[in-house]
Amino acid sequence: MTDLQKEQIKTLRLQGISYVKIGEMLGISDNTVRSFCRRNGLSDTAKNTVACKQCGKLIKIVPKQKPRKFCSDACRTAWWNSHPDCVDRKAVYAYTCAHCGKPFTAYGNKERKYCSHGCYIADRFGEECGCCD
């Protein structure tokens, strides 16, 4: 059995696919798949686990709870930081700066008035902000 087949068996088994189907997909005996899974902790008891989306570590599924997707906060943060396209940002607001008049967008803040901290300081204290040329 090749390393590629071993990885494919791990992946397919974590998805809950049976030994027979995995054997048919990879062209190897279902007994070979079964013994590999038993040796590597992927047997029927592993059906109560899922793999972490970031590191692949097995996470135990607790009955009557929502299944976890990540093994830790560090993995969750790392995954979301590396997949910004998966974030559904609904709270993006368009404004016009109260100081310089330039249009800008802000995420998650409905009350924003200025495009930058420099414009806020300039408008409040009557100084030059540097962004308005």
Rank of each mutant, 00 (worst) to 15 (best):
R112C: 05
S82N: 12
Y107M: 11
V92W: 15
C131E: 01
L42G: 02
N31G: 13
F36K: 04
L14V: 09
D3S: 13
K113F: 06
D88E: 15
A74H: 15
T11M: 12
E7G: 10
Q5C: 12
R68H: 12
D44I: 09
P67N: 10
K66L: 14
A46R: 03
I17T: 06
S116D: 02
R124N: 13
N81M: 15
Q8W: 02
K110T: 06
S72D: 10
I28N: 01
S18N: 04
V87G: 01
R89Y: 14
S29G: 14
Q65V: 10
A94V: 13
G41H: 08
I22S: 01
A74P: 05
G130Q: 08
L14E: 04
H117L: 09
A78G: 12
D30E: 10
A91T: 13
Y19C: 07
C129L: 07
A122H: 03
S29C: 13
K57G: 13
C100Q: 08
I121G: 06
C75W: 01
P63V: 04
E24P: 05
M25V: 11
A51Q: 08
K110I: 00
Y114Q: 02
K113S: 03
N31E: 13
C55E: 09
C37W: 04
I59K: 04
D123M: 07
I121D: 06
C37H: 03
C100Y: 01
S29V: 03
V33K: 05
S116A: 09
T11N: 12
T49K: 10
F70M: 09
A74Q: 15
A91Q: 14
E7I: 11
C115K: 03
L58D: 02
C71Q: 04
Q65S: 13
S116K: 04
Y107C: 14
T77D: 12
K113I: 00
Y114H: 00
F36M: 03
F36A: 01
E7M: 13
H83Q: 09
I61D: 13
I22F: 02
W80S: 03
C131G: 07
R34P: 05
K110S: 03
A74G: 09
Q8L: 11
A78N: 09
D88Q: 15
G101L: 07
Q5T: 11
T77C: 12
G27Q: 05
R13W: 07
P84C: 05
E128N: 15
R124A: 11
S18G: 07
F125K: 11
M25I: 11
T2F: 13
K113M: 05
K90N: 11
G108L: 08
I17G: 00
Y114I: 04
C119A: 03
D3Y: 14
A74R: 15
E24V: 00
P63L: 09
F125G: 00
D44C: 12
T11V: 14
T49C: 14
D3C: 12
R34K: 10
K113D: 06
S35C: 15
Q8Y: 02
V62P: 09
H117R: 10
G27Y: 06
G130L: 07
T11D: 13
C71Y: 02
T77K: 15
F36I: 06
C55A: 11
